[in-house]
Amino acid sequence: MRDALIELLCRRMESDPEVFFVSADFGAPALDRLRADFPRRFVNVGIAEQNALNLATGLALEGFKVFVYGIAPFISMRCYEQARVDLSLLAQTRELNVNIISVGAGMSYDVSGPTHHCLEDVPLFRTLPNFRLFSPSDAYLVERFAEVCLAEPGPKYLRLDGKPAPVIYGPDADLDFGRGFSELAAGSGACLVCTGFMTRVGLEVRRALEARGVDLGVVDVYMLDSADAAALARVLSPYRVVLTLEEGFVGRGGLDSLVHHCLEGAARGPRVFGLGLPHRFFFDNGGREQLHRLAGIDAESVERAVLEKIKSSG
């Protein structure tokens, strides 16, 4: 994901002199070319996330389109006050284009342990006014949103997975960032609403359930700040059961909150259940799948939960 983004930015920096890249001492193979080719528009501030955002704000006020690059839990939470004051607040009165590229969403850095898991950023950035919060499930989505970042001002938080992602959309997908979600598969009876890494799990669960005669709908929400609530409600309303699936804490303002809110006030509609992490940190070892098994959000656990909720909502 990040390589696709950096390679695209690298190409754009050749023709657009306004693009500036700020790293908080975080690298990638693709970044080596960018910093070699554009030394005057690349700066590494060191392990100093607060300064990375302060600096990005100043550059943006001078008209640059700034991309700030760092490790997810640190570039989101170490400098959250800078995101709030210098980006969210200031963007209400000044035009500025700052894009936080946050790498290592959720449990991407699985065996590194809980300091490197990033489980809180979705509610934190969903609550900041003027911020756009992008949670992609594949690299093509990232490339397409990069065009939005270059074209449209405002602060944006790009929540990228730390590991390679399977192709979900491909290069010709019909994407609508104003709508902010895609119905990947229409189903009947039950629908799984996912975001980011969990969308691939959702599709896996759909395939598994197909064999058991269950037609599970799958929706991928990629704009977590601004998905079109009315449009999402129209898609979800016909279902009897809607389950949200996220690699974040349940009931704490994440994807489940977004879905509950979009269905709020409906006279009739689906029963909504949240699947995600229990509200604790994970010190456990063994990799992401193992962590997901422990948390009950691996494909098998989700499959069981879907069947159980369909049954209990019958």
Partner: peptide, 8 residues
């Protein structure tokens, strides 16, 4: 820090 960004 913001001023530093402007200066840069």
């Amino acid at each position: 820090g913001v001023a530093a960004g402007m200066a840069l």
